[in-house]
Each structure stands twice: as C-alpha cells, then as structure tokens.
C-alpha cells in the first residue's frame, strides 16, 4: 500500500491497528510500524493526526527494541548452552543439528 494515496485519518487508523496488534506477541507488527510510518511521524510537514501517529511509532520502536534485545539474548544463551542442557534443550528444539552435541 502506498501511504501517499491514503487519507490522513486512515493512516492514523492503520498505524493504531499495527500498534495494538503488536501487543498480541507480534513484535514484527511493531517493527513494520516503526519503519513504515517513520517518514509520516517525523519527516512529513505537520498535520492533525501526526502527533498521535508519532506516539504510536515511538512506542512501536521501543517495543521492537525490547523484543530484539530479548530475542538476541535468548538466542545467544541457547546457542551457547544448548549442549549443556542435554535433554531439556532437545525437547524445546524443533531442529536438532546432526553430528554435534
């Protein structure tokens, strides 16, 4: 969808949906929201709905960063410690590498 052709109130509605959707453990919605509406929120000349969009986008950015930190931390710990955890690690894995501990 090209945001250039969308009315301002629809943009706000869209941004709000993505923002709320992110709370359903869908961090990618927040990430998409952050990137997609960044221009609208911070770079476009001011318009009525922009302030609200800016709030949503800021919160989405914050949420995405928290999620990224959390995921990176988990992946790092898991990759480093998987072999030590033994059976537990196998049971929470979908794909177990072959030929390695």
């Amino acid at each position: 969808m090209d945001l250039k052709r969308v009315k301002n109130e629809d943009k706000l509605e869209l941004c709000r949906k993505y923002y709320l959707g992110g709370f359903a453990l869908l961090p990618f919605l927040w990430f998409v929201n952050s990137v997609w509406f960044f221009r609208e929120a911070f770079l476009k000349p001011p318009y009525a709905e922009q302030k609200q969009i800016k709030t949503y986008v800021l919160r989405s950015i914050l949420g995405s960063i928290l999620w990224i930190c959390a995921i990176v931390t988990w992946v790092t710990i898991f990759q480093l410690k998987r072999a030590d955890w033994g059976a537990t690690a196998d049971y929470i894995s979908f794909i177990i590498p072959t030929g390695e501990p």
């Binding site: 196998d90 049971y91 177990i96 072959t98």
Partner: peptide, 15 residues
Amino acid sequence: TCIRRTNHQMNLKPS
C-alpha cells in the same frame, strides 16, 4: 542422547 533425538517427535526434520 541420540536415541532420544531419534525419538523426538517435535523434530521438524525427522532423521
């Protein structure tokens, strides 16, 4: 370990 992994039902790539 390897018997457990062979029997592991969650495995997406059964091997």
